[in-house]
Write a protein that binds this DNA or RNA. Structure first.
Lengths: 217, 217
DNA sequence: TAGATTGTTAATCGATTAACAATC
DNA sequence: TAGATTGTTAATCGATTAACAATC
């Protein structure tokens, strides 16, 4: 009630995972320290911006030296809440679901898929990630038993809204939607859409521009 | 040389696909006109912002009435360069590749996957999207023959950079990278990374905040 | 100490929004 | 005409960047 909520700009939070990715790479390469200048090169972010972003959370560097890589990794992980394990629910065990389940980048960041659901009885009982595929009717029970707060939707588009509703009702707070459907969720649930079409349309603009330029006599 | 390049803010270009998605939905529902106010509700964007965004490209509305839905759809598609067909190359025919190939949201926006490649000889010759899987050694030939400018990387992470290099060398200008690897491309190639970890880490911050709040005594 | 690089302030820049005259 | 809603200006807001004193 006395500590103010410290309104952090959205842009800062978006850049932290970017810094983190590069820092983990640096740590892996055995770099012990890194300057904001070097980090700026690697992330295409202005060094002053990096320093300013970090000061929102404290002072992590040493003047004249730079930032200690392992320490900064831990600090950012802590800020993001990525310093402990999170259980995920994956709904849909088709091609897309299988790709996500096999992807171990998630595990490296502490995201463990501990529940997988599918509607198709033939897929129920199969292995996926490190668990067994449940029928979707079990969703509410399994998710609340495990206290899962993060869900991934990888079902056919027409089922997306229904699945989102089920996840929400079961207590999920973050939803990653891999279908192109716009789904509605209550205000206290954070939704992220991952639609290749969106990205393509966006970049397409720049392609059209340069092609027009070279095509125009 | 005389018409100035009309520097359009990045944010504007990012929002256009969002507007387009909703407008296509509205058109499908038979809505003939829409106001910026209504569009604002549906997209969570300030109506003034929508109007201002559109004026970068002309005046498409009618005062007192709103915007004609089919017309605005066509205008935005034209601005983005999505008013004609684009051929795509997909590299990687595993689970993820198959999911992308089967996804018909791409086709609806004029993105046709006309070339698929894989390293595994057992997959070569299989059907994928509307075409046959080629061996990756054929990549340069097929892409340049078809004049493909957009490529999707859906291979194991360790091969990402190599594939990016091959695509770039073959003349591809836009790359969608579905691996978690940070790949390097020349400045005239636009790269988009789609990494679930990034999104999750980002949203996680907000989850941690609210949980801390309720957990702190 | 001299050199380097942070943390932080102040200046710049650009994007968002409110307001309203134009006009359908 | 009265009501609605755009296009556009001007005001606000916030984010980025340059600059530099603090300090390792």
């Amino acid at each position: 009630m006395s500590a103010k909520p410290q309104e952090i700009p959205e842009g800062v939070i978006e850049r932290l995972p970017l810094y983190l990715g590069v820092l983990i790479q640096l740590r892996h390469d055995g770099q012990s320290t890194v300057s904001s200048a070097r980090l700026g090169e690697l992330t295409d972010v202005n060094p002053a911006q990096i320093r300013r972003d970090l000061t929102h959370f404290g002072s992590f560097g040493k003047r004249g030296v730079g930032y200690d890589v392992p320490t900064l990794v831990e600090r950012i992980q802590h800020i993001l809440g990525a310093d402990h394990i999170h259980r995920l629910a994956l709904v849909g065990a088709g091609n897309l679901g299988a790709a996500i389940a096999n992807y171990d980048g998630l595990r490296q960041h502490g995201f463990h898929i501990t529940a997988v659901f599918d509607k198709d009885p033939r897929r129920v009982g199969e292995k996926a990630a490190d668990t067994i595929v449940h029928h979707i009717d079990e969703l509410a029970r399994v998710i609340s038993e495990q206290g899962i707060k993060i869900g991934i939707i990888a079902v056919p588009p027409e089922a997306a809204q229904e699945v989102a509703d089920m996840l929400t009702a079961a207590g999920v707070r973050i939803i990653l939607n891999y279908t192109p459907m716009l789904v509605r969720v209550p205000p206290d649930v954070t939704l992220h859409n991952t639609d290749p079409v969106h990205e393509l349309l966006h970049t397409l603009y720049y392609l059209s521009r340069t092609e027009d330029a070279s095509a125009s006599r």
